[in-house]
Simulated assay, not measured.
Amino acid sequence: MVIHDLSKQNSILNTFISEIRDVNIQKDSMRFRRNTERIGEILGYEMSKSLTFKPSKIETPLATCHMQLMEQDLVLCCILRASIPLHYGLLNYFDTAENAFISAYRRHKENPEDFEILVEYLACPNLDNKTLVLADPMLATGQSMLATFEALKPYGSPKAIHLISAIGTQEGVDFVNRNFPENAHLWIAAIDETLDDKNYIVPGLGDAGDLAFGKKLQH
């Protein structure tokens, strides 16, 4: 896997990451969603540089303009629910992309430290020979990304795979690196130190889904 850690270069991306982390700023859920959306836009822009382009002719009112335009068919996969703002950021830039939606969540067992990833709802177009983009703001253990990828396999074989995350851990990065194809790409804005005993990223930011949309009903 090719890993693109954008935190290694200073940019305006640092501002948006710092604000979704800040315990005071993140109390504003609308601002949290918008900042996550802007992170998706920046990660999508960086990802676009690695895609395939082809020569194209554009007719302006005065003459013909020759440009290089992206030729790949993208499918943006949103892992519900935390990924919705990140997904919108990507869709802002790749407005002709197809979209897939999947629910993947942790179901904890008797030991709170043990959990399994459950995939329930899934809607996806055909993936054959397309570029699949999996978006999940938090790459903690990496298990949600892998469970999503496995669930999508019946829908076809993409020619390229890109993972998009705002914040992850080295453990999560290593996990996807081991379990995804060698030619897959990971685009990530920050890699944090570790996971706590509940598998939350530290320092992280908390629960991205709750911060964006409110706390879940506990069963």
Rank of each mutant, 00 (worst) to 15 (best):
F149W: 10
S56F: 06
G156I: 08
S50P: 00
T148V: 10
T15C: 13
D196S: 14
L152H: 04
I201R: 03
K198Y: 14
T52W: 09
L127H: 00
M70W: 09
Y200M: 06
M145W: 05
D210S: 12
D114N: 06
D197V: 15
D22T: 13
P137Q: 01
E182I: 15
L163H: 11
S165V: 08
R33Y: 00
A208P: 07
H4K: 15
D5A: 11
Y88G: 02
E98C: 13
D207T: 01
L195A: 04
S144K: 01
P181T: 08
A104H: 07
M67A: 15
P181A: 11
L6N: 06
Y155N: 10
G214Y: 02
D95R: 13
Q72D: 15
E110N: 13
N10F: 15
P137K: 00
N129W: 03
D174H: 11
P158R: 05
E182T: 15
V2P: 02
L152P: 11
L51T: 13
E182V: 14
Q170A: 07
Q218M: 15
L51R: 02
I102A: 01
H87P: 05
N126S: 08
I20L: 06
E113V: 06
N24M: 05
S11I: 13
H185D: 12
K215F: 13
R38I: 15
L69K: 15
H66G: 10
A166H: 12
Y93D: 05
G214C: 11
N24E: 13
A189R: 02
F16D: 04
I42V: 12
G89I: 06
I191K: 01
K27C: 09
A104K: 07
K57H: 09
D207F: 03
L118K: 14
P55F: 03
N14E: 12
T141H: 01
L122S: 04
F213H: 06
L51E: 08
C124F: 02
Q72F: 07
K153N: 10
I117R: 02
A151L: 07
D207N: 03
N179Y: 05
Q170R: 06
I42H: 11
